[in-house]
């Protein structure tokens, strides 16, 4: 079921923004010396990072290592102190979040950020509308509307079609997490940042989540923050270990799993 939701019709009917097809073989995301300081606290120190198209990358690290701060820096939730953020080869450091999103970036949040007063279908519609333009239309969307159709497909993909008319506030935690991820899948992104997507999910729901992540179209790159090693190591091609705002180690999942320094640092702080 998850393997088939690639929004095929969207590719045919929707003209993609010109900048989305650019980039070619270069990295989809490039960070050059990105630093962020909150007063005297250095949350990110000179981070250099490249994510290639279709690459799947997991970020590990203890609480306070700077993982979510890194996401906020990439998405533009706050300005960085120094350095450069490049999406598809273009410098987006000074662009607001919504401009970066229109260039193919998506993200989810550790704590679900949904629209509680709207229905599930309306949440999904907004996600598709935001990328596709005509955001200021004062008319109701037509039944044939591209964004409306795309949102129906996405509802199927994240198994929320039957809850379409329910208010978001009435959904279970697991369903809210599904919607949280669904919102980030709108209209073929280039890069998705998943911030602890498995937080608070049951083992069965974790299985569903892994299936969703594994079934994402190959051209979509993603970066995942996850404490659950089982989830992280099963979906990632590359693992980055963060510590005190720096990239401490990076490598293949199996190497990182065995690395003694990583084990001490990560498991030590977590279970110690």
């Amino acid at each position: 079921m998850f393997g088939t939701f690639m929004l095929q019709h969207a590719d045919k009917t929707v003209r993609r923004p010109h900048y989305a097809v650019r980039g070619g073989l270069g990295p989809v995301l490039e960070l050059r010396g990105v630093s962020k300081a909150f007063g005297s606290l250095v949350a990110l120190a000179e981070i250099d990072l490249k994510i290639m198209p279709g690459e799947r990358c997991a970020i590990l690290g203890a609480n306070g290592a700077g993982k979510t701060t890194l996401f906020n820096a990439i998405s533009g939730d706050f300005p960085i102190s120094s350095g450069e953020v490049r999406l598809l080869g273009q410098d987006v450091t000074s662009l607001p979040t919504h401009d970066r999103v229109r260039r193919g970036l998506r993200r989810t949040y550790q704590i679900s950020q949904l629209f509680g007063g709207l229905s599930v279908r309306e949440n999904m519609y907004l996600a598709c509308r935001g990328i596709l333009g005509r955001r200021f239309s004062v008319l109701h969307p037509k039944a044939s509307d591209v964004a409306l159709k795309a949102s129906e497909d996405l509802l199927h993909a994240v198994k929320l079609y039957d809850q379409g008319d329910a208010l978001v506030a009435t959904l279970s935690h697991g369903q809210q997490r599904q919607l949280e991820i669904g919102l980030a899948l709108a209209h073929n992104p280039n890069l998705i940042l998943f911030d602890e997507p498995a937080a608070g999910l049951s083992p069965a729901e974790r299985g569903d989540l892994i299936a969703i992540l594994q079934s994402l179209p190959k051209q979509i790159a993603f970066v995942l923050i996850e404490h659950d090693m089982d989830v992280a190591l099963r979906v990632a091609d590359r693992v980055i270990m963060m510590h005190n705002g720096e990239i401490f180690k990076e490598g293949l999942p199996e190497d990182i799993e065995k690395d003694a320094a990583v084990q001490e640092l990560y498991l030590g702080t977590h279970h110690g």
């Binding site: 939730d77 607001p96 999103v101 629209f115 007063g117 907004l126 935001g130």
Partner: peptide
């Protein structure tokens, strides 16, 4: 709908474009 979205969660609206 978008305006109500801004009311409910302006930060997420940013992240949706």
């Amino acid at each position: 709908l978008a305006f109500q979205g801004v009311r409910d969660n302006a930060r997420r609206m940013e992240a949706l474009g």
